[in-house]
Design a protein around this nucleic acid. Sequence first.
DNA 1: GATGAAACGATCAACAT
DNA 2: ATGTTGATCGTTTCATC
Lengths: 155, 155
Amino acid sequence: MTARIDVTDRKILAELQRDAGQSLDEIARQVGSSKTPVWNRIRKLREAGVIGQQTMVLDAEALGFEACFFVLIRTSEHEADWQAKFLKALRDRPEVQEAHRLAGDIDYILKVRVQNARAYDVFYQALISEVKVHNVTALLSMEEIKSTTMLPLES
Amino acid sequence: MTARIDVTDRKILAELQRDAGQSLDEIARQVGSSKTPVWNRIRKLREAGVIGQQTMVLDAEALGFEACFFVLIRTSEHEADWQAKFLKALRDRPEVQEAHRLAGDIDYILKVRVQNARAYDVFYQALISEVKVHNVTALLSMEEIKSTTMLPLES
DNA sequence: GATGAAACGATCAACAT
DNA sequence: ATGTTGATCGTTTCATC
């Protein structure tokens, strides 16, 4: 299933996640190879789904998204169709940037990025009116110390 | 300070975060403009810091990062130099993908991506030996329902 | 894995509105 | 001031060795 990913592949991936804008020549130089083999590897990694979306990371604050909440959710419902409905609600709401189902006491965690506290409340009210949840705790971020999607690929 | 960002800028940004690989011509067509003005706007947004890193999002699981933890941290220390040391520790550790300072009861939340539970323990032991923390709760992700850095820019 | 050719895209200057 | 055109240059893509 999973294609074998060797040291050169990992170096290429490390470069691509660091700066997806650089040219093949630059990447080839960094990984100690040349254009064509690098290009073929990238194509294969893309086909295998190892490489996903290519995006520009934007400055949330500059665009008016000044509030960020982490939301801890406990629920008493664990039937399949409740879950399907809940997951769909999360996937459909663009303010939800992350959603994970957890092991243990707390069932779900969300990261929600909104304009301000009032916009969070609108989101919250809409969510709880759509699906029943037992307990919700919102943690308000005061400062984003770090935020990256980069994986440490130096192995 | 913050440059005015108009509707066209927002449309361009929406396209760039959706797919940073598309050509200027495509973007221009999508936003109803043409190449040069779009290019000038992108340059300005880049200079203003609204556009940050250009990256490829990789499949963490395919690369062997099979465990993801959210870590809730309480501390009793609130002096400036403790904080500086703590923040530096977080920024220096590549397994920390997100770190936020919070309002309220819990002081910090981290998102930590590692190979497996044992690698998390190594990280945890290293962190608490570097800086004193009062209380740590780790939430283990069982399923990544959603993960994006995209901001909802349809305003 | 290297070479090179053809298609394509970015960048910028000169021009037009 | 802002949009349009096109020339130039670099890059990607792919066939061939």
